[in-house]
Design a protein around this nucleic acid. Sequence first.
DNA 1: GGCGGTTACGTAAGGCGTAAGAATT
DNA 2: AATTCTTACGCCTTACGTAACCGCC
Lengths: 296, 296
Amino acid sequence: MFTLDQARAFVAVAEELHFSRAAERLHMTQPPLSRQIQKLEATLGVHLLLRESRGVRLTAAGEAFLIECRQLLEKAESAPVRARLVEQGKIGLLRIGHTSMASFSVLGELLRRINEEAPGVKVELREMVTSRQIEGLTDGTLDIGLARPPVPEEFIDSVPLLLEGLAVAVADDHPLARRGEAVSVDELRTEPLIMYSITEAQYFRDLVVSLLHVSDEQVTYTVSQALTMVTLVAAGHGSAVIPASAGLFSFPGVTVLSLRESPADAVQLHAMWSSESNNPALRSALPVLNTLAVSS
Amino acid sequence: MFTLDQARAFVAVAEELHFSRAAERLHMTQPPLSRQIQKLEATLGVHLLLRESRGVRLTAAGEAFLIECRQLLEKAESAPVRARLVEQGKIGLLRIGHTSMASFSVLGELLRRINEEAPGVKVELREMVTSRQIEGLTDGTLDIGLARPPVPEEFIDSVPLLLEGLAVAVADDHPLARRGEAVSVDELRTEPLIMYSITEAQYFRDLVVSLLHVSDEQVTYTVSQALTMVTLVAAGHGSAVIPASAGLFSFPGVTVLSLRESPADAVQLHAMWSSESNNPALRSALPVLNTLAVSS
DNA sequence: GGCGGTTACGTAAGGCGTAAGAATT
DNA sequence: AATTCTTACGCCTTACGTAACCGCC
């Protein structure tokens, strides 16, 4: 098989159509260049050049091989550059898991900033619940998770990206909606409520239960996502306690009122990543995450 | 810069994730393989592998470089193959010049057979008059010409591809058309005639003049191509002497009658090529030309 | 005779294999 | 102790440069 040096030698000769000038360009003397070209032709079993009294010409095969060689050398030059860029995290792949709510709040801004900071980094988005995200971060199939607390201490680093209060979603024709003021937990005691699933949305369920005393009879439906709640509220199936940001998107037939007793940082969304990740693209993204962090 | 051998070594290690097995695959011992990989990493300035107690893993940069290396090696393998195919004339470019009449007769069959014989050969077609074709063959910008005699003896080889008689094109409402029989030259003595240009179609002009006694007063127009003649005949500008094959394509308003005195091989179309051409694609095409040849 | 490519020969660099070493399980 | 990668050393291949050579305008 031929070598890259032979390819470079051939390209030089083919472009100069003159061995001595080509040798000069390659910073070598002319005889070894001749030998290399001969060797190249021998290993290929193809005549690339027509030696004539007045310099050299390319055969048809030489023309074809010249094109191939140029492409080959270009690739040989660019491959190390790419490898270095990947190592520096300038290009690469970032697999981001996120909850469905995250896509309505910080996700857009996060992607914008990552793209600003490291334009070559491709992002793969996967909507997944918190527990799956932790799994992904642990087994290396995910680089960043946008998930709910608690953050497992081991091998997972995190910053809080979003702190918000809880709000109450009620139908437009509900008395509380007409009143238009913040709602107190006591006013929800007897309301039909749509609740979070204990398996799929434990974080929210715990959060709501810690504030309200929810009785089984109140609960009309059990769902896994805040958005589903809003659609059910619109359909008249009851009221729901949701993160405040879910109210930013006005949904027809639904009025969102703040919940008086909810601390402003009741609901948290954290960015998490494996502290042991060796994905350089993650390293480029970390400054972005820290910029977006809010104090918890 | 790295070498192709280093690329091969890296691919082997990256695929085996084990130096000893990779070395075996490369038919070498393990220590020099280690050194080559180290050297590769040093020249790239990039860590490609994570050496761990239980074998090796790829870094993100390593993954990227692996992909590049595979493509690089594939190209390095295919380039010589391409060069050999070009040399053998299996692939390549054939520049064929042809007269406009050739495209109505042998050209289609010729292209079909070339494509059968050498499917990798790309054909570039250029309509040009005979004299331009000879120039092209001589200065190397054309590989094959489909042109009219005479064939210059020097450096041009040829085979006759088509021998045909002359015919007479007359308007449908002409008395000769109504009669529907072969025409004699004497019957054309006083007919208005469309003639060939002496500069652009000398071959045809000479041919016609050698058979007919054309007087200047007869000539209504002077044109360079037989097809133009047919359109002028249709428009009622006179009659014309054309190659018989031009009558194969029935043109509305025109009747083509054979010319009694014309020998069956009066009009000749030859394939010509430079005997000094070094285009391998031409060599693949020559058997095809010989197959299509007719005896003159 | 000069221009342009090839052949001959001595030197130096670099790769390979064997053997020994270091680290982890 | 075994596995797996790295380091040390001697040999040999091979590429380079200088010098001499061949063919053609």
